[in-house]
């Protein structure tokens, strides 16, 4: 199979002037062999990338199976408009990348650089939106290194109610069911968030926000002698504590997967900057050969594809 036959504009009558003549490296017999090697090599690399992310997706699936309520609860904190915007931005960048590859195949310098700059702008936009999302997570106490689920829920309530005054933390136990039931439409909305609707024993947002701790009545506190070194043990953790820990697990996965994906975006941007720089200097490796652009394009589509999976799996849980 000849790759040159497969690409657009190979016919001599093409209005774009046909395909550029590529130099052949010493280890190859001809240009077809070289191009095929590059393509097979890149696809093999993408297989390793799939396995790389695959391990993360495995962890995601396992914990989603084990803790469905946590996933349902935690996606409250992810902004669907921002995620959807990012999806659109990446799709746009994929299209620009296709155009850049076509321009490179036809040896059009301006087109190739222009489209690559558009890809770069898109990826900067993506990272910018990602930074906004991350910083709000940091602010709300959802970063796993400094995790504070109660604070995050108080912030969430504040945002949902649009209530700037009276921080929820100052009315802690009154909000716990059985202590003093709250009234009003807002309360009902908060009370019945999705996880609570599907999993009746899941803590309410109020309970989570109050960081309510209790010991189940039938578990006595262990005496020091009984407990040995475990003197701090006071019975099983409360549902609120458990939910908080599980939420931390969810955000471990969230930051791990999106962080790894963002790292791939950054690597892709560096590759594009390299190609643009070489093309501006008319370096033969990208001037006479469209393969570097083609391979970066393959990589870039893969990175986009990962996000296409991440977005629904993280943001659109229901």
């Amino acid at each position: 199979m000849s790759l040159r036959a497969a690409i657009a504009g190979n016919t001599p009558s093409s209005s774009h002037g046909g395909v550029i003549e590529q130099p052949v490296s010493h280890q190859f017999e001809d240009i077809d062999q070289q191009n095929e090697c590059y393509i097979v090599g890149m696809w093999t690399f993408l297989v390793t990338e799939i396995m790389f992310f695959g391990a993360f997706f495995l962890a995601y699936s396992l914990y989603r199976t084990l803790y469905p309520a946590t996933y349902l609860d935690c996606h409250r904190f992810l902004s669907i408009p921002l995620g959807a915007t990012n999806t659109g931005v990446l799709l746009l960048s994929s299209w620009a990348m296709v155009m850049a590859v076509v321009s490179a195949q036809h040896g059009r310098k301006g087109g190739m650089i222009g489209w690559l700059v558009l890809v770069l702008l898109c990826s900067m936009g993506f990272l910018g939106i990602k930074a906004v999302e991350y910083s709000s997570k940091f602010r709300e106490g959802l970063w796993v290194g400094d995790f504070n689920y109660a604070k995050a829920n108080r912030e969430w309530i504040k945002e949902e109610k649009g209530d700037e005054g009276e921080p929820f933390a100052q009315t802690p136990l009154a909000a716990i069911p059985g202590a003093a039931p709250m009234t009003g439409a807002d309360t009902a909305k908060l009370y019945h968030h999705e996880a609570k609707r599907v999993f009746p024993y899941y803590p309410t947002v109020q309970e989570l926000a109050a960081d309510y701790r209790y010991t189940t009545p039938d578990t006595k506190e262990l005496t020091k002698t009984e407990a040995g070194v475990y003197t701090s043990y006071t019975g099983p953790p409360s549902a609120v504590e458990t939910a908080s820990k599980r939420a931390q697990l969810f955000f471990s996965i969230y930051f791990g997967m999106t962080g790894l994906h963002a790292l791939h975006i950054i690597i892709g941007m560096m590759m594009m900057l390299t190609i643009i720089g070489l093309r501006l200097k008319d370096h033969p490796s990208v001037t006479l050969d469209y393969m570097p652009t083609e391979l970066v394009g393959l990589y870039w589509h893969f990175v986009d594809l990962v996000w296409i999976f991440l977005f629904p799996l993280m943001y659109l849980i229901s």
């Binding site: 396995m51 790389f52 391990a55 803790y67 796993v144 290194g145 820990k245 931390q248 697990l249």
Partner: peptide, 30 residues
Amino acid sequence: ILGTPVVAITLLLVVLERTLHIGIFSPELG
């Protein structure tokens, strides 16, 4: 090609757990 990336990410997760507290394998978090 198929195996090494998986162990790479696995070991990286242990590094992240030790440094950034991304606790995918942490029993404390479930």
